[in-house]
């Protein structure tokens, strides 16, 4: 297993800085990327996925992104997009099979290997009953699992999640993150997730990066990043941290008193 490194990664939009960041992550770690809207979280994930032109370097192990083909990079880094496109009429199994694109043989037939990996991941994510159901006839939580399954069959060692829970209710948010954590442990995956829910980020991630206006405001472990002072300054709203004996840090914004 190999670590993920990014150095001098920079994205400019004309003169405006959209992202500038450095860092590395040991394999098997979970990095939460935090920050207000427009901070550059999605841009960062797209840079890691090789979908956005950027300065600097990204490496997984000794493979450089710049010298990898699209398929080579897709076999190392997989992305679960925030709002995946849902092609009408496509079945869950066919959708998951798209994750094998980077392993296509030259005449394009799906081999026994492709099928068995798709079947294995579909079973692991409890999608077997839905495999031949069209995507437009499953729920949001099921779609999230199908998209995760599609990322897992790529056999990439780095899994990028762009706000994986934003479309889900409370129970499904927890379920998806637990699922990601389970496959991370089972497969030794490195996870990089852009997250909005700071409490859940503190629960699941062991490394955190807080971005604001494209720059890193704080990076490190839970104690370095999830402090009331740092978060309040970055989000521009008073943020309180409660310590629950069972659940750890509960992070919540404090409403302003009504104006008199």
């Amino acid at each position: 297993m190999s670590r993920l490194r990014w150095s001098d990664v920079e994205v400019l939009d004309g003169d405006r800085l959209r992202l500038r960041t450095d860092g590395e992550l040991r394999s098997g770690a979970w990095l939460a990327v935090l920050g207000p809207n427009g901070a550059g979280k999605s841009t960062f994930l797209r840079c890691l996925a090789g979908m956005e032109d950027h300065g600097g370097h990204v490496m997984v192990g000794d493979q450089r992104q710049a010298s990898a083909s699209r398929a080579e990079w897709a076999r190392r880094v997989a992305l679960v997009p925030q709002n995946p496109v849902v092609p009408e009429g496509m079945s869950v199994a066919e959708y998951v099979l798209l994750g094998r694109t980077a392993h296509l043989s030259w005449f394009g037939a799906e081999g026994a290997d492709d099928r068995s990996r798709v079947a294995e991941v579909i079973d692991q994510l409890d999608l077997a009953e839905l495999a031949d159901r069209p995507l437009d006839r499953i729920s949001g939580g099921e779609l999230q699992r199908a998209t995760l399954a599609r990322a897992l069959v790529t056999e990439a060692e780095v899994l990028l999640l762009d706000e994986p829970t934003s479309a889900l209710d409370l129970a499904h948010q927890l379920h998806v993150l637990e699922l990601v954590d389970e496959v991370r442990r089972a497969r030794g995956l490195t996870v990089v997730a852009a997250m909005h829910d700071l409490t859940l980020a503190g629960r699941f991630a062991d490394r955190l990066t807080l971005l604001a206006d494209g720059e890193t405001v704080a990076a490190g472990g839970v104690d370095d990043v999830l402090t009331s002072a740092v978060l309040s300054r970055t989000y521009g709203v008073d943020i309180r941290i409660l310590d629950d004996p069972d659940l750890g840090r509960i992070i919540t914004p404090v409403p302003r008193p009504p104006a008199t």
Partner: peptide, 18 residues
């Protein structure tokens, strides 16, 4: 199968290695 991958749009198709 490439034509199937294009059904999820260009950005996702690229991220899948196409």
């Amino acid at each position: 199968r490439h034509l199937d991958v294009l059904r999820v749009g260009e950005a996702e198709a690229r991220s899948l290695g196409a």
